[in-house]
């Protein structure tokens, strides 16, 4: 009961930011859909794809050219850097909401002086993040579906976008697991953003460089980005049940580790 009060308050703390991000995401994807109606842009992309060097396809992932040819500019809206940025932003905002507003400011002292356990606070953080990322994945799908409906194109279908949103959600809860561990040890939002940001940047670079230098593939299992291949999904790929279960399990395990650290650490502020 008391834990729920904290959860409600935590959700209240991020819902405006979450809504804005979801609406931004929706508008962003819709923009690509609207641009997708332009025959001129589509023809231009097709022309560019003919001369694309093989290295680019290698780096952008399997199915890149095929997805672009099929979906035109809509596919570009789902490429790594753009989507990643928005989703990662939310994860950091949600986590730092707890770290900065409670731990760094010392307000957690007030909360922890009440009968609410640290583990419960941490579980609430996980719930807020999963709900937030779920909402964003849903909006990604809705915006793509709305865009495709708007295009009235028989060439396109909304099915792959549902799989894509699911893949994105899985990837982000994996990343959230890393961020959650950093949140458990951070005293400030700055520290969280610095260490969390550097780690994700390194993972992203490693993932991009793996096709170019094969030895890096041994790091792929721990690299969240290696589980996201939007272009392959757009051209008929899907996320296997096994991969889904593994990623959810890894994310939950990382949250559990973060919770374990958080329940045993000193909180110097407050």
């Amino acid at each position: 009961m008391i834990g729920n009060i904290h959860l409600t308050q935590s959700l209240k703390g991020v819902w405006v930011k979450l809504l804005l991000l979801c609406l931004g995401l929706f508008a962003f994807e819709m923009l690509f859909s609207i641009l997708g109606t332009s025959t001129q842009i589509y023809q231009g992309i097709l022309k560019d794809m003919k001369d694309i060097p093989p290295i680019v396809e290698k780096m952008m992932g399997k199915g890149f050219v095929e997805a672009i040819v099929k979906y035109g500019i809509i596919a570009i809206g789902h490429m790594h850097p753009i989507m990643m940025l928005l989703f990662i932003l939310f994860t950091f905002i949600a986590v730092s909401q707890v770290v900065t507003s409670e731990v760094a400011g010392g307000a957690i002292g007030f909360t922890l002086s009440k009968p609410v356990s640290r583990i419960r606070i941490y579980i609430n953080l996980a719930i807020v993040i999963y709900v937030g990322l779920g909402c964003q994945a849903l909006f990604t799908y809705l915006s793509s579906a709305a865009g495709i409906t708007l295009l009235h194109s028989e060439r396109l279908s909304t099915g792959p976008f549902a799989a894509l949103a699911w893949n994105l959600f899985l990837l982000m809860i994996f990343i959230a697991g890393y961020v959650a561990i950093f949140a458990a040890i951070s005293d400030s939002g700055k520290m969280l953003f610095t260490y969390g940001g550097i780690t994700l940047m390194v993972f992203y670079i490693l993932n991009t460089a793996t096709p170019l230098w094969q030895p890096l593939k041994y790091l792929s299992p721990i690299n969240p980005f290696s589980y996201y291949n939007p272009m392959a999904i757009l051209v008929g790929g899907r996320v296997s049940v096994g991969t889904s279960i593994s990623l959810i399990a890894v994310s939950l395990a990382m949250f559990a580790v973060g919770g374990w650290i958080f329940s045993r650490r000193d909180i110097a502020a407050g």
Binding site: E102, G105, G106, G109, F110, L112, P115, A269
Partner: peptide
């Protein structure tokens, strides 16, 4: 701790409560 803090009022030093 959880049992005890039902009956405690805690005032930290120079800390601003939840700012937002």
């Amino acid at each position: 701790h959880l049992d005890i803090c039902k009956d405690i009022g805690y005032l930290p030093s120079a800390v601003r409560p939840r700012r937002n």
